[in-house]
């Protein structure tokens, strides 16, 4: 039994990692009161920028950094539109996704069908040899460990640091924050850039380490799942992690079911990860009060400092 479960859990973590990045980034953005629906588009741009850079330079880390920069650049467009020009956040976010879809397909044309050669995931010394936990947790790509560090950092920053408190206050009541003297627009800018950068890393992980290949539209709705995760996880980082790995787990489990000879219609299996994630998260967050308590009050509202 353990022998079957270990590879499932190990693959689950890899499959959930792009979501961890994107959803944690969006969580921080939303906590500052900015609703950026362009996650899917930013992930796609991060994926193609990362893949193109990795293929051209042969350096996977450079690819990851390029993905991060590209995601941040996308979110900067959004920030200019919504934070400086006061455009509607929902509409701008949707536009950003459509823009990302088109631009990545266009830029990615020469990279279609190109394969990226890379080494397998390394095993950490000592930790990788632990029974059960070793193969599940410590034989992953380095970016997976980075995602855990980001999780720890985001949790600490938001709920244990002063700067995090300021960021949250900007999301709750920008007027009060502004009255006390905090630079609301600048804080929202930084939070938006952070969200874009992480979405870009998530996309780059997908194209550079996970697949590793570029296919048009390869993010395949993960950006939207990340957005849903943030809401259903009631803006709590730990729940975001649970949701992300749940999505990854169901994605992987369908393959194991097939390889094990269980006959379930394949289209249903393909839809299952989306379905399962939404259902479980809805059940977790069915208490309306917790959503209301945790959701940033000014989410999605433009703010003009007087």
């Amino acid at each position: 039994m353990i022998d079957t479960l270990v590879p499932i859990f190990a693959a689950t973590i890899a499959a959930g990692t792009p979501l961890v990045f994107a959803a944690l980034g969006e969580l921080v953005t939303e906590k500052a009161g900015v609703l950026n629906l362009g996650v899917e588009g930013m992930m796609l741009i991060g994926a193609i920028a990362g893949f193109a850079t990795a293929v051209t330079t042969g350096n996977l880390w450079l690819g990851t950094v390029a993905g991060m920069a590209a995601g941040a650049a996308m979110s900067a467009i959004f920030a200019v539109l919504t934070l400086n020009l006061m455009a509607n956040q929902v509409a701008s976010g949707l536009a950003l996704t459509l823009f990302g879809l088109g631009l990545s397909a266009f830029v990615g044309k020469p990279f279609e069908g190109v394969s990226l050669l890379r080494e397998g995931a390394p095993s950490l010394p000592l930790l990788g040899d632990l029974p059960v936990l070793g193969p599940i947790l410590f034989r992953q790509h380095y970016l997976v460990y980075v995602s855990w560090a980001v999780f720890a950092a985001v949790s600490w920053f938001l709920f244990r640091s002063r700067a995090g408190l300021v960021l949250r206050s900007v999301g709750e009541s920008p007027d009060s924050a502004h009255a006390i003297g905090y630079p609301v627009i600048r804080i929202r800018w930084l939070a938006t850039l952070f969200g874009g950068a992480l979405a870009g890393v998530g996309g780059a992980f997908l194209a550079v380490f996970y697949a590793p290949m570029w296919v048009e539209g390869m993010v395949a709705g993960r950006g939207w799942i990340a957005l849903a995760l943030v809401v259903f996880a009631t803006w709590r980082p730990a729940r975001v992690m649970v949701g992300a790995y749940l999505f990854g787990g169901v994605t992987i489990a369908q393959f194991f079911a097939q390889g094990g000879g269980i006959a379930i219609p394949a289209p249903f299996l393909s839809a299952l990860p989306y379905l399962a994630t939404i259902i479980v998260l809805v059940v977790i967050s069915r208490n309306v009060a917790t959503i209301r308590l945790n959701s940033p009050v000014s989410l999605g509202r433009s703010y003009r400092p007087d």
């Binding site: 079957t4 499932i8 499959a15 996970y210 296919v215 393959f255």
Partner: peptide, 21 residues
Amino acid sequence: WTNSWYDPGREREAANTLISQ
């Protein structure tokens, strides 16, 4: 079955699954 002619991500997951089986 991957239900797609070209989806490297799914193909790789399927391959890894078969190896672990």
